[in-house]
């Protein structure tokens, strides 16, 4: 899973760079518009280590932001799963708030909270949170009738059991959504850094943009791509392991 993610990224990245180079040579553009391979490798030699640590810095905020949003999404999703007035209210609120572009709120967050760690964390969590919430709400609000009926009929249904059944039956979907939200959390952190932070890879990309240096941007994108692929690969592997554990009865064979 981990290596497949990295291969996939490398194929996409190489295709992208090849496309750019094709345009460059087909239309005779200078290195100022699209860098050639020599410049790209030279920039990578100078900048890659720095960008690697910048991405790690960004990733630390991403992981934390994603954890916060997963916790929030499950908390709200579990409360909002009921067809009671509270559940309906939470669902309506979630659907309406997520329609508002978080990036538009980012400048206000930076003005109020400064350009430190908290602003980055908040924006990353917010960007990652809403799509997660919508998926969790959808999963938690859909009864698994065949199974739940038995527990309801026997009077043994509790809310914890209900949540467990729905999570278990939708484990594949949940794992995919959580792994996918890693990209959103990373994008959120980078957007936050790009707008106003003073560290992280988004901030480095902003500097490269000031200087119209596409080679640096491509190297930064490479660092981001590799690290996010590894992170997503790890999340998927962990998801697989959890699935295997859940599906295997204690001391027994896989179903």
């Amino acid at each position: 899973m981990l290596f497949r993610r990295i291969y996939q990224f490398l194929i996409v990245y190489c295709l992208g760079v090849t496309g750019l180079l094709a345009i460059k040579y087909a239309t005779g553009l200078s290195n100022y518009v699209i860098p050639d391979l020599t410049l790209l490798f030279d920039t990578a030699r100078r900048m890659l280590t720095g960008y690697f640590f910048d991405v790690l810095n960004t990733l630390s905020v991403t992981v934390l932001g994603q954890m916060v949003s997963i916790f929030m999404a499950f908390f709200v999703g579990i409360i909002g799963r009921k067809s009671s007035w509270l559940g309906s209210f939470i669902k309506v609120m979630a659907y309406n708030i997520q329609a508002y572009p978080i990036v538009a709120l980012a400048p206000i967050i930076f003005i109020l909270m400064g350009d430190g760690f908290l602003s980055r964390l908040l924006i990353a969590s917010m960007i990652c949170y809403f799509p997660l919430l919508l998926s969790v709400l959808g999963i938690m609000a859909s009864p698994i009738k065949d199974i739940e009926h038995f527990y309801i009929a026997t009077g043994r249904m509790r809310w914890q059991l209900e949540v467990k059944i729905r999570a278990f039956e939708n484990l594949n979907k949940l794992t995919t959504v959580i792994a996918g939200s890693a990209t959103l959390a990373m994008a959120g952190t980078i957007v936050a850094e790009f707008i106003a932070a003073d560290q992280g890879v988004g901030y480095s990309i902003r500097i490269a943009l000031y200087q119209s240096d596409l080679a640096r941007i491509l190297v930064a994108l490479f660092s981001i791509g590799i690290i996010i692929s590894v992170y997503q690969g790890i999340l998927e592997t962990v998801g697989e392991q959890i699935k295997t554990k859940w599906f295997a009865p204690k001391g027994g064979e896989l179903l």
Partner: peptide, 27 residues
């Protein structure tokens, strides 16, 4: 400067550092 090269603009306004960076990269 990029737009001049891409053919989207015929004239433009650029700062000196942009001009010098562009010249370094063969624009």
């Amino acid at each position: 400067i990029k737009e001049l090269e891409l053919g989207y603009a015929n004239f433009g306004v650029a700062s000196a550092d942009q001009v010098i960076r562009a010249l370094e990269k063969g624009a």
